[in-house]
Design a binder for these strands. Structure first.
Lengths: 191, 191
DNA sequence: TTTGTTACATAACAACTGTTATAAGGCAAG
DNA sequence: CTTGCCTTATAACAGTTGTTATGTAACAAA
């Protein structure tokens, strides 16, 4: 087991504590306890707590990007775009946890410009992917030529972000099927 | 100056600290310092810190509801619905701060079911308002009769929530005019 | 004036925080 | 074996946290 893997283990332990107890209760000692070891391990693989936080936040971005890239295996088409967008909805426990950690970090970034900048970069990468998808669909005549890919990419991401958030809050919201329909219909209107 | 007002002053001081420094750095002492007094004031008007947090969170909900109810003065129509939805977008500094505090609290509520339930109640009230508006518009033949008000209310709120969030992250996102257009177009499709 | 309530200040408490230094064991290379 | 590195444990540090108790003015009611 390399040191790389150990870093991931610490980060994943941090995730579990964040999801279960909240980010502010995720102390070095709590992470170590989750990993069933002492704080010596945590401090050995991460300089600072901020170092750990940034690593864990980066993991969130990677998880989201990985989910989106996975559906790029499918053949080009509007269904692929929809599938890509549905990646953001918390359909299983894992994606639900990803969203929870993401929200926790976003709230934590309020009043912290350097962390908010990290979110900005992350959102930029995701938007670029969706925008490229839209342009590809436009080029293949799947979508109308008069719409602005940048605007639509933002709108679509905002929509799925909002839907995912509502799911997290569990505001007696739409079930997953209904959420998928909402996204589906929005995409259909772009055709 | 009654005791009610003093409670609001403390809560507003807490808001300012949250926006400027982040929720986790918003300690009793920081709030007192922001109010230019000692912690005795804070502890005198709030039993717990949780008591203070819940009050401040409730203030966020009230601020959002107040903004939505204000536009209900306008004559019924699709423009009123759009105006109601635009309430959630951070067009000025105050609404931007409201959104920041809201996001901070939402992230803080991860791993805290009782706080998440408060968000749930808040979201429920907002959704009820939008849903009532949709039903009124349907009754007046402004909107198509075949669409489900509950689904559309959720979708619309998700859209504006997502747009507002993107604005907060400042992800080189759409400017306010473009965001308004996105909402406007979505509503037009419901007609 | 006396009394009692409200409003605020001060100080101390134990618990917890991130950080750091030091030490001990595991294990491969020489 | 010895040497040195990697990993982990332990302990202590100074600072911050929420909470609580106590003290002290201000001020209205009696």
């Amino acid at each position: 087991m390399g040191q790389r893997d150990r870093r991931y283990e610490v980060s994943e332990a941090a995730w579990r504590v964040i999801v279960r107890e909240g980010l502010d209760r995720t102390s070095m000692r709590a992470i170590a306890h989750e990993l069933a070891c002492t704080t010596g391990v945590v401090t050995h693989y991460f300089r600072d707590k901020q170092d750990l936080i940034l690593f864990a936040l980066h993991q969130v971005t990677q998880a989201l990007l990985q989910g989106m890239r996975a559906v790029q295996q499918q053949p080009l088409g509007c269904d692929r775009l929809v599938a890509m967008l549905l990646t953001f909805l918390p359909l299983d426990t894992k994606q639900r946890d990803i969203l929870k950690v993401w929200v926790a970090f976003l709230g934590y970034a309020v009043g912290r410009p350097e962390l908010m900048a990290e979110h900005q970069r992350s959102a930029g990468e995701l938007r670029a992917l969706v925008m490229a998808e839209l342009q590809a669909l436009q080029g293949a005549q799947y979508l109308r030529a008069d719409l602005d890919p940048a605007v639509e990419a933002n709108a679509l991401l905002a929509l799925v972000n909002g839907l995912g958030l509502d799911s997290l809050i569990q505001a007696q919201c739409l079930n997953l099927e209904q959420q998928q329909q909402v996204v589906q219909r929005y995409v259909e209107r772009l055709q």
